[in-house]
Amino acid sequence: MAKILEVNNLKTSFFTHLGEVQAVRGSSFSMNEGDILGIVGESGSGKSVTALSVIKLIDEPGKIKEGSIIFNGRDITNLSNSEMSDLRGNEIAMIFQDPMTSLNPVFTIKSLMTEVILRHTEMSKKEAVAHALHMLDLVGIPEPESRINAYPHQFSGGMRQRVMIATALSCNPKLLIADEPTTALDVTIQAQILELLLRLKKETNTSIIIITHDLGVIAEVCTDIIVMYGGMMMEKGTVDEVFYEARHPYTNGLHSSIPHVISGSRGRLIPIEGSPPDLMKPPPGCPFSPRCPHAMKICLEQAAPMFNLSKTHTSACWLLHEDAPEVEGYIKGGDQID
């Protein structure tokens, strides 16, 4: 299986006039073709910025400080904006969170979609329109022939999201990045969109990255998960590993804070105390240490390296170091990845 994406030590910051906001502070991961990777974390954890960095849509005053991004075997780290624009919408596509504001209100759907198709393919105008209709049908827009001439404001939120997906997939990208695709939608529509993504993936084998803060979404569709906090990766693994064999205090904290709907039970929610770190003055050690029930001295001073727990499972926690005390649930093993 080919590696579709490899990110090494990505560091992205925003250089505002108040200071440098370090949004991503050293992320490394890779994805295989056909994976559905979920990146989960709180607001400000750096998940969106990671995604935007991969597609190189970081705007002033932001910049990718350090690191490399290798897409489909090609190093795209230093590509210019215009070179990237050949890739975007073509081999890498992205859809965004708020469908209400993500479509240009003064153009028809036909205009918006054919523009993208014509940009990246050799089709004629007529062929482009036909292809757009085909895509609209694929995503489940009823009566596409008449609706294609409509304007965005004439669609509901769920429909607009589908249009965005149709546009993004129209040129058969190898990688689709979905930034909180369902957050702004009703729960029922959420389910439809997720189901749509799964279906499309099955047909085209597109690799997908889904950014979300909703563990439920992750559980539904993802094959692999990255947990981020404070600009750094905390844990990475397959869905099963991260859900059932989590070995990071943050991940475990997340699991405990999800309400369990079991009839008759009256348990209490266990929130994670404290609040996320200030990314302008990030703490020198592990970003989660102020809130971690198992924090050690070293955690405050140095960020933990990733420990290999299996071929697919890694976790950045000092508890996994051979010199750390034994804590239940944190079986050590695996070497450090330096």
Binding site: P290, M296, K297, L300, H321, D323, Q336, D338
Partner: peptide, 21 residues
């Protein structure tokens, strides 16, 4: 792998953690 002082692997109390300004 660099040597890390075994002393560092002691748990810290709440007060020792950095507090927000």
């Amino acid at each position: 792998m660099s040597r890390i002082d075994k002393d560092k692997f002691k748990f810290v109390s709440e007060q020792e953690k950095v507090h927000e300004e």
